[in-house]
């Protein structure tokens, strides 16, 4: 399945279309979600895993993964953490405010390829945002998949993203959700420990599973080691990579990762495509 290509409204692919903020809500102390309507209420089809370039008037532009429901193209949903000039300015957006949107860009998680198999979704920290569209898709098309497992790790209980939804998913009998945090105060009743510890006993068949992993590189790196130990081959593991991006169309050169441009060959890669470079420092 080819992921959707950007909305073409301008002669130059570097020109954004305008979007209007419908809603902003806080997910954690430093993470918030924006719902955006593209100018004229145009539908915005995307595939799980794709990202947009969001532009704030005069401030700048940043790549942010799409974290909404791919079956509902009427609005765009982005979850981001305040980490830089642009995202800090974005937190001040109110309903009705305007921003620029370019996208959707990049490759998608292999939700079609995973049909008929077990699926394990493994997310760390804000890495759950680019995977949430996958979870929406899996839930909506539950019968197409065998077992579904969601493993999620966060630094502390306060840092858990989409806590309410995680609760709803784990209440379902046909989905296994395991959440763990690195450290917790006593009132936390869930798992404590790194996410890799959830993998050995998670209920999936290593021979017939598709793993989709997203989080900081170091988290993905240890997660893949544990998946390998469990017997999951690199060809059945998919990761989402991050590098600096300026153009998102493969022309500016910033997001290079060896032979790949993260913006157009990624961000989602089958692990064997990046395996050789994965643990090379500063690459």
């Amino acid at each position: 399945m080819q992921p959707p290509t950007p909305l073409q409204t301008a002669a130059h692919p570097m020109t954004p279309v305008s979007g209007r903020v419908l809603r902003r809500r806080w997910e954690t102390d430093d993470t918030f979600t924006l719902d955006i309507e593209v100018a004229g209420g145009r539908p915005f089809p995307f595939a799980p895993g794709q990202f947009n370039m969001l532009y704030l008037f005069g401030v700048g532009e940043v790549p942010i993964s799409i974290s909404g429901d791919p079956d509902d193209p009427s609005k765009l949903t982005h979850t981001t953490r305040e980490v830089g000039v642009v995202t800090r300015a974005m937190r001040r957006l109110r309903p009705g405010d305007t921003l620029g949107v370019r996208g959707p860009f990049g490759s998608a998680w292999p939700v079609s390829e995973a049909e008929g198999r077990d699926v394990v979704v493994i997310a760390g920290g804000i890495g759950l945002a680019p995977l949430r569209p996958v979870v929406y898709h899996l839930m909506r098309h539950r019968l197409r998949y065998n077992r579904i497992v969601i493993l999620y790790g966060a630094r502390s209980p306060e840092d858990i993203l989409y806590a309410k939804e995680l609760g709803q998913w784990s209440a379902r009998l046909d989905v296994e959700v395991l959440v763990t945090v690195d450290r917790a105060a006593r009132r936390w009743r869930g798992n404590v420990g790194v996410i890799t510890r959830l993998i050995p006993r998670a209920p999936f068949d290593p021979e017939n599973v598709v793993a989709m992993v997203c989080g900081p590189e170091i988290m993905m790196s240890f997660t893949v080691l544990e998946l390998h130990r469990r017997g999951v081959a690199s060809e059945r593991i998919h990761v989402s990579m991050e590098r600096n991006m300026k153009c998102a169309i493969g022309l500016c050169g910033h997001c290079q990762y060896g032979p790949h441009f993260i913006c157009k060959d990624g961000p989602v890669f089958r692990f064997d495509a990046v395996e050789d470079l994965f643990r090379v420092r500063e690459f």
């Binding site: 301008a10 130059h12 570097m14 020109t15 954004p16 305008s18 008037f57 009705g96 305007t98 620029g100």
Partner: peptide, 16 residues
């Protein structure tokens, strides 16, 4: 490109 923000609603238009 060059973008201009309108006074009223803060929306902007972009001229390539």
């Amino acid at each position: 490109w060059r973008a201009e923000r309108s006074e009223g609603d803060g929306a902007f238009t972009i001229a390539e």
